[in-house]
Design a protein around this nucleic acid. Sequence first.
DNA 1: ATGTATACGTACCGATCGGTAACATTGTCA
DNA 2: TGACAATGTTACCGATCGGTACGTATACAT
Lengths: 205, 205
Amino acid sequence: MPADKNIELTISDRHASAPPKAAKKILDVAYDLFYRRGIRAIGVDEIVKRAGVTKPSLYRSFPSKDELAASYLRQYDREYWERFDEAVAAHPGDPRAQIIALLTRVGKRTQKPDYRGCGMTNAAVEYPERGHPARVVSEDNKQELRRRLRAMAAAMGAQDPDTLGDGLLLLIEGAYISGQLFGLGGPAQSVARNADLLIEASLKK
Amino acid sequence: MPADKNIELTISDRHASAPPKAAKKILDVAYDLFYRRGIRAIGVDEIVKRAGVTKPSLYRSFPSKDELAASYLRQYDREYWERFDEAVAAHPGDPRAQIIALLTRVGKRTQKPDYRGCGMTNAAVEYPERGHPARVVSEDNKQELRRRLRAMAAAMGAQDPDTLGDGLLLLIEGAYISGQLFGLGGPAQSVARNADLLIEASLKK
DNA sequence: ATGTATACGTACCGATCGGTAACATTGTCA
DNA sequence: TGACAATGTTACCGATCGGTACGTATACAT
């Protein structure tokens, strides 16, 4: 279930009704294409064609393709933390169970046939140049992920919370990547089990 | 120290001397540009310009840009296993020490200022379509990595060698990716420490 | 010197890239 | 009805994409 809330705060919050419809269709289509096939691989022509709109419509709502990509990632970011918070909320006050729930879900997603990894991670690989609009969003997302994982490791009572938090991040990123590299039956299916072992070895005795 | 052995078996092994010099320059330049800035981001025009040759020269030695990218990855593959075997050879008969040596080096490389991750991983992200020449090389490389890590986990006497091998792979891939995402001081610097903890927790007691 | 093979360069191809100018059409609310 | 905003239409821009037709330079063997 993709992009169904507001498009961009600056667009939808004008006077509480009837934001441009074209912008939403464009962003929905761009979201799907960028995620599945990559940002560089998709041209604006294909986006407008599949969205049933024209190019000027795209450039009225988004200043450039790069900014459209950044908008796609901001949308991805919202849904990312929704999923995150959902797993956390399922085990209130139990950070270890939260992590395991989170990683179990990630592991399951990576085993779906056409899994394509994390949109954030992929975008950062596609745009190595510092300061690129898409990369900025991606880096912010990862910084926040690191912050949360370290905080959760501390709440678990790890001997070295920063090391455990970073170790969990490495496992997660490894799952994102190897999920799209190996497909079904790949190493990503064991991410939760390995995280559990790592946590066990990292707690104060 | 880049690409200084043979270019392509099919080129250099013609009659044991004087293979086209242009092909080597092209592959060297392509290697550098593809790795640092991405394959899709680099056009053939830039490659031939920086190599000081012309486009027809490129297409006499390589049937297409995609195949040039595949050649780049085959070269990367050779150097990859050279580094791997080097770390292994430093600790004969001690798989755990081999892994730690390996991951210590990976962790160090990820902390270099302009670290750009694993060329194989990056190529697979850039080319999600199955069967793409570049992706095929990348997938083969990863399969082999998984095979070796599982074998080493078994040699260590892990309770569940496949799970430990896969866990190590997840940590390694996580290090490749987060190395280029976070730069200096990122989570990748702790990959060896986390691997050691994971190994400790995975051995038979 | 002349044939033959190989490597290289000039110049070009059609397609697509991201992006825009100018204008016509629609729907909505006053 | 009039005004305005959103969208559509058509046609175009210069740049770059991957790739090639075709002539030329060099080397070596006869």
